[in-house]
Write a protein that binds this DNA or RNA. Structure first.
Length: 291
DNA sequence: GACCAGGATATAG
DNA sequence: CTATATCATGGT
């Protein structure tokens, strides 16, 4: 059993509830207070569960025992996924004086900005979700994972693991289209896979501006996708996908607006979020499930 | 059947 | 620089 004590404040029930809302998700499942998932480590495909015990995240590898290196990798993944190194305390100190955010941070107190540690998964999910409704996006993602990723059986449970760039980069457009991707999105996914395989630098050592510039150089990655990845994979608080339709819907609902805000209005509103644009965006997204 | 979905690009004016 | 067509298909 591995353990991680998150920074305070941290409410695992908020985390669990948020993940459990993703009914169509194929890469993890929630059951009786525990989250089940598998990732790739140096020990191969590693299934595990996460629950809350003794005021800490309890991470239990399932099946064959894994070595120390894989344990470190597993803990690093969970820490980035469930964002145990958040800065909620500073965000809350800011948000209590913001009329739009104050009710949200009270309602979802202890919920960190949940992450997507797997960079290829984050890019792919963003690309798949471009311009289509989330129900269909989840369907495409599931088919994509089933067709090109891996499945690992453990304790009578099927664990699906997202494909690597290596598993995708040699596929043809037609092969990718079999999972209901458009031709453009198939090309975008190939571009991202090539980008990740060609990049020798440690991306996690680079600045927000440098990463934004590099991402926008990939055909298929625009402002929305780049900021989404910088928010979910890199945890940059200043990332702000201001073109996001869900963000616009949340603003409209909370402000009681007769129409959605324009992109320019959303960008301007972002300035009222100060250095906490990503945190604000995540809390606005979270509110959509309760409107 | 029209219109919108967690957008981005190519092309035209 | 702004405007429009295109993409794939499910939900409303």
């Amino acid at each position: 059993m591995l353990s991680i004590t998150p920074r305070a404040p941290y409410d695992f029930s908020q985390v669990y509830r948020h993940l459990a809302l993703q009914e169509h998700e194929c890469l993890f499942s929630c059951e009786n207070g525990a989250i089940y998932r598998a990732i790739r480590t140096s020990a191969g495909i590693t299934p595990f569960s996460v629950s809350w015990e003794n005021n800490a995240l309890a991470i239990a590898p399932l099946g064959a025992a894994i070595g120390e290196a894989a344990k470190v990798e597993l803990c690093r993944f969970v820490a980035r996924w469930l964002n145990t190194e958040h800065r909620l305390d500073d965000f809350y100190a800011f948000a209590k004086n913001n009329d739009l955010l104050a009710p949200l941070v009270a309602r979802y107190h202890g919920l960190p900005v949940l992450g997507l540690p797997n960079l290829f998964e984050a890019f792919s999910w963003a690309i798949i979700g471009q311009q289509i409704n989330l129900t269909f996006a989840h369907k495409v993602k599931r088919q994509f994972v089933e067709a090109f990723g891996d499945v690992h059986a453990q304790n009578g449970r099927a664990f699906y693991v997202f494909p690597t760039p290596e598993q995708i980069v040699h596929l043809s457009i037609d092969e990718l289209k079999t999972v209901q991707l458009s031709k453009q999105k198939a090309m975008y996914l190939l571009n991202v896979a090539e980008f990740l395989l060609e990049t020798k630098d440690d991306l996690f050592a680079l600045s927000f501006d440098e990463l934004l510039h590099r991402f926008l150089g990939i055909k298929g990655i625009g402002s929305w996708t780049a900021n989404y990845v910088l928010m979910k994979s890199f945890h940059f608080p200043q990332s702000y996908p201001h073109l996001d339709v869900g963000l616009h819907n949340a603003i409209k609902a909370l402000r009681g607006m007769p129409r959605k805000p324009s992109a320019d209005e959303a960008l301007a509103l972002g300035e009222s979020f100060g250095e906490w644009k990503a945190y604000a965006t995540f809390y606005l997204w979270r509110s959509l499930a309760d409107i």
